[in-house]
Amino acid sequence: MNWQQLGRHPSLAIGLMAATLFALLGLVSLWWTPFPIEQISIARRFLGPATEHWLGTDHLGRDMFSLVMRGTLTSFVVAGLGVIIGIGVGVPLGLAAVAWGGMVEWLVLRLSDITFAFPAVIVAILIAALFGPGEINAVIAIGIFNIPVFARVARGGALAIATQDYVAAARLAGLGNAAIAARHLLPNIMSLLIVQGTIQLSLGILAEAGLSYIGLGTQPPATSLGLMLRDAQSLFLIHPWLSVVPGLTIVLIVIALNISGDGLRDAIDPRLRHEGLNHGAG
């Protein structure tokens, strides 16, 4: 992937740029926001967008733009950690299923069947019932949901690679299963994983919003885009603006990520279209 290729896929360039912009916006909130996030000022609540408060203020008089910045960070971090868990556990499982085959493959497939039976919301419910709600809850729920997705994508991609003669050549050269998985299978499914990672990141952001909205995810005083929607829930008939801002932010981020995912798929390898998984949001 280089600049020239980006130029040939304008939608990919736009998607990547927008997604990076949102991620940076969130990152900056660690050091700077227009107003301190915790600053409550009842006198200044429900202000509309103006020069001082770009996106207005919420029911506690907090600056909406600052909240959106920090909320975006939370969404990215939760979804990103979910993807890392999914890749970290799922990809080795998928590769092992192909490299070892037999019983290992059977076990991985059954394990992923069972995990598929637990949609993210159910996992979040189980964890919340035990330990109470929180960001960690959302990360684990999304992560567990991602594991079988990446296991299946890795297995699917690696199965196609494993029939190639160069894998047989590596076996002839005395390489073991682990070495073949690391040297030949993993590098050749990397583009597949990048594409799926982008898609799961966008699904994770949607899932975080849903979980925080029903109160199983991020808890105050921390903030996330889903939590902002939860706060706005009782007020949205009178002050719809409070739910429009975080909602629209989620939509824009997810569109940016999805466009990047589609674009990467087309740009890296048109053949991937057949292999990628397309999962609904939890």
Partner: peptide, 28 residues
């Protein structure tokens, strides 16, 4: 003993240089 495969297009890892592919059996 060694083997030459039928399909020359699938017998080299597209992400490795020819040198790396040729050197693989030297592990033995």
């Amino acid at each position: 003993l060694s083997l030459v495969f039928q399909d020359p297009f699938s017998s080299f890892d597209p992400r490795m240089t020819i040198g790396d592919s040729l050197g693989e059996p030297l592990h033995l």
